[in-house]
């Protein structure tokens, strides 16, 4: 633990926004700061343990916490004060995340099939980025990603940061059906859709990895703060791993 870190020096400023009658959004800037996941995980625990009588749930994301509270037990203004106090109490201990294998959090390797049959948006991404398919694949699997948040669907892990050359805006019209296993990119983020769902990300591959099981403890094989490395598999391997699945944790190398 570094003793010289000043809790407020580098930490992005906190702002609040209403998120309905019983939720408050705590926003720490709008950048994908690799120091935030650890800080937010700690702050989340503090909020749940110290304000548990008025706060039901706290949902972390890249740079925010969504705090669900009981408006009949606390005034919104008072809750904001208490949350601000707690966020100043949690130390900002930033050790910038590196690709070093000794970095904190486990490294989880995830297989991806980048075959065109698995990648419905590869052509569109090639056109938008002016990159070849080989370059797109090399850039996507060429770095380790940090798990910034779990959400959107059970076990959906938001990963970052994507190489700048692959950063594209979300699709204008979200798809109503994205197949399970689809590997998407959007902005600075990449992720694998664990289940069929709607979605607005560009799909450049597919993975047979299982991200969530309600009957397992822990239910998700990766946690916020872990790292993920993609490796490519061919279409046949993808098909057989998918078939083998049937609820098993196929293709995980830890």
């Amino acid at each position: 633990m570094s003793s010289e870190s000043n809790p407020l020096t580098d930490r992005p400023d906190l702002s609040f926004a209403a998120a309905g009658v019983d939720a408050l959004l705590m926003q720490f800037g709008q950048t994908m700061d690799p120091c935030l996941p650890g800080f937010l995980a700690q702050l989340r625990q503090r909020i749940l343990s110290e304000l548990g009588d008025v706060v039901h749930e706290v949902v972390p994301a890249y740079s925010s916490l969504l705090v669900y509270y009981e408006p009949r037990a606390v005034r919104t203004f008072d809750l904001e004060q208490a949350l601000e106090q707690l966020s100043n109490d949690v130390p900002w201990l930033c050790s910038p995340w590196s690709t070093d294998d000794n970095a904190p959090g486990q490294l989880v390797e995830v297989p991806v099939c980048y075959d065109p049959r698995c990648a419905p948006d590869l052509d569109a991404v090639m056109a938008l980025t002016k990159l070849s398919a080989e370059n797109i694949i090399a850039l996507h699997k060429g770095r380790d990603y940090q798990v910034y948040a779990l959400g959107f669907a059970p076990g959906f892990a938001y990963l970052g940061a994507l190489d700048e050359q692959l950063q594209l805006p979300r699709m204008k019209n979200p798809r109503t059906h994205v197949p399970a296993g689809a590997v998407g990119i959007a902005g600075q983020q990449t992720a694998v859709y664990p289940l069929e769902s709607p979605g607005g990300w560009h799909l450049i591959g597919a993975s047979p990895f299982v991200w969530f099981r309600a009957d397992k403890d822990p239910m998700t094989p990766v946690q916020v703060g872990d790292r993920i490395r993609f490796y490519s598999i061919d279409f046949d391997t993808y098909e057989s791993l998918r078939a083998e699945h049937d609820g098993k944790q196929a293709g995980i190398k830890k």
Binding site: A19, G20, D22, A23, L25, Q27, Q30, T31, M32, V59, P60, A61, Y62, S63, S64, L65, L66, Y68, A149, G151, F152, Y158, P169, R170, G187, Q189
Partner: peptide, 9 residues
């Protein structure tokens, strides 16, 4: 562009 965040009812 906004980073993904918690979505309430």
């Amino acid at each position: 562009e906004f980073l993904s965040e918690g979505v309430s009812y």
